[in-house]
């Protein structure tokens, strides 16, 4: 008998002999998700933007709101200059970003192991938790969200979702990417005496540039 057979046999002998059908099990599982509002927190604001902003900034994420995509390079300049950094950054190779006017910037696609700053695009934002969603893909290296010290993320207001479950629905109805990541604040650790320190392995700074609805 293989380990698989032994494990499954041990489970089956510990459980009742007569078992519900897969359809009945699925119905039971679905019932455990019914009326989700009873078991999840209320949003932290009147609107999705307000709730998202409140949650994200409470975790040390900074946020800049711009009216349209064309204003993104200016917002990036504002951030980098504010941090005293040169106008250089790694750019996610998605046309929404590479198609913008980056004159005056040194942009590149390949990430250095100690990259200072990188700009990526979030697929969704989650208002409940102030999280950003990134999926791996041909134009989205996962390391773009982890190697840089300053992680800048573009988020479209129109892609804000209220709750984690709303994102679970989106994920379930698409082909699963290799990695689906919820980013909720800059990297941090409390491993030395419980003191909170930012930039443990991932980015020490997380900056969201929020594009107003209609400005895509």
């Amino acid at each position: 008998m293989t380990a698989r057979d032994r494990i499954l046999a041990a489970i089956r002998s510990a459980l009742p002999r007569s078992r519900p059908s897969p359809a009945a099990i699925a119905a039971e599982a679905a019932a455990l998700l019914a009326a989700p509002d009873l078991a999840r927190p209320k949003l932290a604001g009147e609107t999705l933007v307000e709730a998202f902003e409140r949650k994200a900034t409470a975790l040390g994420t900074t946020l800049d709101r711009v009216p349209a995509m064309a204003a993104v390079p200016r917002a990036v300049r504002r951030y980098l200059e504010g941090q005293g950094l040169p106008l250089a950054l790694a750019l996610q190779r998605t046309s929404a970003l590479t198609g913008l006017d980056w004159s005056g910037f040194d942009t590149h696609g390949d990430l250095a192991p100690d990259e200072t700053a990188a700009l990526g695009l979030a697929l969704w934002g989650i208002a409940e938790s102030g999280s950003l969603v990134v999926h791996s893909g041909a134009d989205t290296p996962i390391l773009l969200s982890f190697l840089p010290l300053h992680h800048l993320v573009l988020l479209r207001e129109a892609t804000l979702l209220p709750y984690l479950e709303d994102y679970a629905d989106r994920l379930a109805s698409s082909d699963s990417p290799r990695n689906a990541i919820l980013i909720t604040g800059p990297s941090g650790t409390t491993d030395i005496e419980g003191s909170y320190v930012r930039g443990a392995h991932g980015p020490g700074f997380l900056h969201v540039i929020l594009i107003a609805a209609g400005g895509e």
Binding site: S129, G137, S176, P177, R178, A180
Partner: peptide
């Protein structure tokens, strides 16, 4: 409320 990174790893590189 959530950890900074919540990641779903589904199979190898596509």
């Amino acid at each position: 409320e959530l950890t900074q990174y919540t990641t779903f790893h589904c199979g190898p590189k596509r």
